[in-house]
Nucleic acid binder design. Structure first.
Length: 671
DNA sequence: CACTAAACTTAGCAATCCGAGC
DNA sequence: GCTCGGATTGCTAAGTTTAGTG
């Protein structure tokens, strides 16, 4: 198929083209959206309305995709921004290729205006300097003592290093925990000489307090350092960043996210982790796998050392990897979120969620049907999916017992995690959830559900022990396979992304009051954001200084109120004065007093809004959803629509991460 | 199909930074 | 200039999903 489109004004033609194509090939539509969204204001919302692909039963049976080999689409635009869009595996005559704008280079490279690589290929050229290793251990000064059983004991360097890890944590509650102490002691002994091992047989006889004091003094000293010294450290860090913090990927210099190797220390998992206190060992060059281009300058290992391996795999995005010793998992050094490779993926994630939007109704109807299935497996799948959709639960992979904290997600819920209330507080069929999720954050919620769901849950729980799986015929793999059949690229987490983003969009619509001033509008934004955070259960520990800071803010408000009262009094008397005198000067005074009152009113309002916002945010973390779940184009569009500076919503880092969205979304963007 | 390894995203907390108010 | 406290950044653990294997 060859299609040539010559629009007169680029704005209106794209959707029409998309419409026509959509009847043939979904993939192409996606690419066109991509295209449409950069060549002119994104008009994705104008895409054909759904039913084409999903809603109509007729379309349903048809394969979503047809072989791409036949497709060769070429768009030629007359406008200067001409770009080509072609199907991945076909060549387009070289002559038609227009040079990308040169010299726009590094400053702000708009990777989103470029063609994407074929599936699987992550880069063509990659060069970097390798990782920065943790600084070597510096033995304690002679005068800092360790005591065993009341007596001074000089430790070998290795044993001492591990001891310092413990000493540095002495104030933490977890050094009192049995598991932590047991794990620590076991691993510490492995680092001891045989004499040390035979002497040090009990952790409770170890006295780290002197060491601990020394470290406290050290960190105090660090705070007290002179400006020059601090400046020097800062410069050293900048040098390190400059040298190791960037790589070259396909002609562009890109920021690396974590170029420093994690230093050794004691592992402290989240929650009740069975491995807490274990020694996280020092990573050496011999542990490191380097990934880069064959034809790049390969990073040199530190003198006297070798890399474990150097490979050239452009099917992956990481630059460096090593295996960590606590869980035996692999750790990676990868690029910053502002990089092309992360940004594209992020963008794609939201596009997948938007595709779900088009077929979510159908999927919902489907799982509601499945609640009635005669197959247990299907019913369980359908109820689980309902939870994932309605409550934004995570998928819930099974975990190896004893390796990690006991936490669950949807598929791994156990009978003990829910309670069924046929009636509760005047509501029917209430399910009470109470479990620890990711990071051992508690999920607690009472949710009225459909009668069918309730009955199914009763069925699933029959003859089971509290510690049995609620969905015993289901796991994430089964669920995701099913989802894949419902929509290409659909997995459990897409529901979280979709529901988060659609909630933000809908809440913004509902909460934004056109007459509000900017701070009040931002409060509305934060409230919409908060609704999402609550949905996703993004909690935080109330800041330690919360109460105090609230009090401070309140006193500021009180002060401002007084100030306002004063200003009003002054205005009043000025007015009275002006009435008597009737001269220019007193009129001017009235004006300026009026202005002052207004200014103070605004300040007061701002403070009050701030107080409300903070109070409502006490235990809610907004960052996670903002960064990972909310399509940034929704926020950008909202800002444009209401004239809110984007800086009020996204800080510098966030603006870098979302540069693509800030550049392409217009005020009419719809998720 | 079950199992595991690998790759990549998502997560909360602690350390650090930085600017407003003294 | 200095200090306090909120904002930002860094850190790395803990998830999800995919790919590979027998």
């Amino acid at each position: 198929m060859l299609l040539i489109l010559i629009p007169t004004s680029s704005d209106c033609k794209i959707p029409i083209l998309a419409w026509k194509l959509s009847q043939f090939d979904i993939e192409i539509v996606v690419e066109l959206c991509f295209f449409a969204s950069f060549c002119s204001p994104p008009r994705i919302k104008d895409e054909p309305d759904d039913d084409g692909f999903y809603a109509s039963p007729k379309e349903d049976s048809k394969p979503l995709k047809r072989p791409r080999e036949d497709d060769d689409i070429l768009l030629i635009l007359q406008d200067s921004k001409a770009k080509k869009v072609k199907s991945k595996d076909k060549k387009v005559p070289e002559a038609d290729k227009r040079k990308k704008p040169k010299k726009e280079e590094e400053q702000k490279w708009k990777w989103w205006e470029e063609e994407r690589y074929p599936e699987g290929i992550k880069w063509k050229f990659l060069e970097h300097k390798g990782p920065v290793f943790a600084p070597p251990y510096e033995p304690l000064p002679e005068n800092v003592k360790f005591y065993y059983d009341g007596k001074v004991m000089k430790l070998s360097t290795k044993a001492e290093e591990v001891a310092t890890f413990f000493a540095k944590m002495l104030d933490h509650e977890y050094t009192t925990k049995e598991i932590f102490r047991k794990n620590f002691f076991k691993d510490w002994r492995k680092e001891m000489t045989s004499e040390e091992k035979s002497t040090i047989t009990s952790l409770s006889k170890c006295d780290f307090t002197h060491m601990s004091q020394y470290f406290k003094a050290q960190s105090e000293a660090r705070k007290q350092m002179s400006k020059e010294e601090k400046q020097k450290i800062k410069e050293e860090n900048e040098r390190l960043l400059k040298e190791y913090g960037y790589c070259v990927m396909d002609n562009h210099k890109e920021r690396i996210a974590n170029f420093k190797i994690e230093p050794p220390g004691l592992f402290r998992g989240r929650g009740n982790h069975p491995k807490m206190g274990m020694l996280k060992r020092r990573i050496m060059p011999e542990d490191i796998i380097i990934n880069c281009s064959k034809d790049s300058k390969i990073p040199a290992p530190p003198p006297g050392h070798k890399w474990k391996e150097v490979r050239h795999d452009n099917k992956v995005t990481w630059l460096v990897s090593w295996t960590e010793n606590i869980q035996g998992s692999i750790k990676y050094i990868m690029l910053n979120p502002s990089s092309r490779i992360k940004g594209e993926k992020d963008w794609q994630k939201y596009e997948t969620a938007r595709r779900l939007k088009k077929c979510v109704d159908k999927i919902r109807n489907q799982y509601r049907e499945d609640w009635k299935s005669k197959e247990m497996k299907v019913r369980q799948r359908a109820v689980a999916l309902y939870f994932i959709d309605k409550l934004a639960l995570r998928a819930g992979n099974e975990k190896e017992e004893g390796e990690t904290a006991d936490t669950v997600g949807c598929c791994s819920l156990r009978v003990e995690h829910i309670k069924l209330h046929p009636e509760l507080d005047g509501q029917e069929y209430v399910v009470e959830f109470d479990f620890l999720g990711k990071d051992s954050i508690r999920y607690y919620n009472k949710v009225p559900v459909e009668k069918r769901v309730f009955k199914n849950l009763q069925l699933f729980m029959e003859n089971k022990q509290p510690e049995d799986d609620l969905f015993d015929r289901l796991n994430t793999s089964i669920l995701n396979k099913h989802l894949q059949d419902l929509m290409e690229g659909l997995t459990a987490k897409v529901f979280r992304t979709y529901n988060a983003s659609i909630t933000l969009q809908q809440q913004l619509k509902e909460l934004t009051n056109p007459d509000d001033n900017i701070p009040a509008k931002i409060l509305s934004y934060n409230r919409a954001n908060r609704a999402v955070a609550i949905l996703c259960n993004h909690q935080r520990a109330p800041p330690k200084t919360f109460e105090k800071s609230m009090m401070n803010l309140q006193s500021k408000i009180d002060a401002k109120k007084e100030q306002l009262a004063d200003a009003r009094r002054e205005l009043k008397s000025a007015k009275a004065d002006a009435k008597v005198r009737r001269d220019e000067k007193s009129k001017k005074t009235v004006e300026s007093k009026k202005k002052a009152v207004q200014r103070i009113e605004e300040q007061l309002m701002k403070l009050e809004v701030q107080a409300t916002d903070r109070e409502e945010n006490k235990q809610i973390a907004l960052g996670t959803s903002k960064l990972n779940y909310l399509d940034p184009r929704i926020s950008v569009a909202w800002c444009k629509k209401w004239g809110i500076p984007i800086e009020k919503i996204y800080n510098k880092t966030q603006r870098e991460k979302f540069a693509w969205a800030i550049d392409m979304a217009e005020e009419d963007y719809e998720f």
